[in-house]
Design a protein around this nucleic acid. Structure first.
Lengths: 174, 174
DNA sequence: TTGAGCATGTAACACGTTACATGATTTC
DNA sequence: GAAATCATGTAACGTGTTACATGCTCAA
């Protein structure tokens, strides 16, 4: 139930936003490590509210509803963070494919690895730009300083993948 | 449809195995980057066979069915590898939680990061042991040398996470 | 006044997980 | 003969994706 808790956490840290607002913030931050669609997000907001973990704190034009966490919601978030352990990530299609590079000609396998390396390099640049564009002192979206630590993870992840792809290229027809 | 192609690829590289055999091999190799349950695997074997991408090559005791890839299956694998691009991994609950460490006391946040660092360290050791236990020269399970490249990824991944967790610990109450 | 962006939701389907269910063979 | 392991499958449920559907408000 990670989306549930991710969304709950977002509302705890950034209250007074609509589903629409939350979706935008989600895409820029949490979405990098836990993607969700608009449908899913609205559905989960309804469930969280039905379960009393969040509540509508005000209504605006165009049916806009702003959310805030309830005490029960805060308890649930804390429980999730301190009493349960995250399940390890175990879905990476790009690496899955690596197992089958042996069925291709060396040229094609190298193309694949080169492309993966380039993707990682671009990903690194994007995250570095995102980092530079954010004002960590005045944190407009309320996610600093933990967001900075997550972003650092992303940068290291991309760098690691770029380096690995370069190493892997050397392994094929050395 | 990554499980579909992962399984297809496995049957291409390692033919003449039963669903049960494939499940064991899967858990030790592909399962690290694309987990699947027994149910899912048997279900997908049925679908792959129904679609003519694999076929039962022999039947044994206890209802055992051994599979092999058809020419159409090989084509499909190659198509997947060369004409489509993998979608980036975007589900990591451990990093998702990092965004909310700010809602905890510094002590608890540090506990979390310390635990993540230790997990990564243990993961690294396990993969190094797995690496040492495999005979890459005579590759019994048919996944070398690409399996070695994937394993190297896993080791770098774990090392990166360990180092990141250590860095992150220093960021909290510096 | 028209288009961009705000704002919410539903329905159908695909994929994944958990639990159950069953039985044959081999090994001790 | 009991236990471990081999071996395959189904059913119910939960999660995630895609596509559709609708309408308001604000700025140019």
């Amino acid at each position: 139930m990670s989306l549930r808790h991710g969304l709950l956490g977002l509302i705890v840290e950034v209250p007074g936003r609509s589903g629409y607002d939350l979706l935008k913030i989600f895409e820029l931050s949490l979405g990098h490590v836990w993607s969700a669609t608009q449908s899913q997000l609205y559905g989960e907001l309804g469930k969280l509210a039905a379960d009393g973990l969040i509540e509508v704190t005000s209504e605006g034009p165009r049916g806009r509803k702003e959310y805030g966490a309830t005490p029960a919601g805060r308890d649930e978030l804390r429980h999730w963070l301190t009493e349960t352990t995250p399940k390890p990530a175990n879905r990476d299609e790009a690496i899955l494919r690596v197992f089958f590079l042996g069925t291709l000609e060396a040229d094609q396998a190298r193309d694949y690895l080169r492309e993966q390396g380039e993707k990682a390099a671009r990903g690194h640049i994007e995250l570095a730009e995102l980092d530079a564009s954010l004002d960590w002192e005045h944190d407009n979206d309320g996610l600093a300083p933990a967001g900075r630590i997550a972003l650092e993870y992303g940068k290291r992840y991309m760098a690691m993948r770029r380096e690995w792809a370069e190493w892997a290229l050397e392994q094929i027809e050395p």
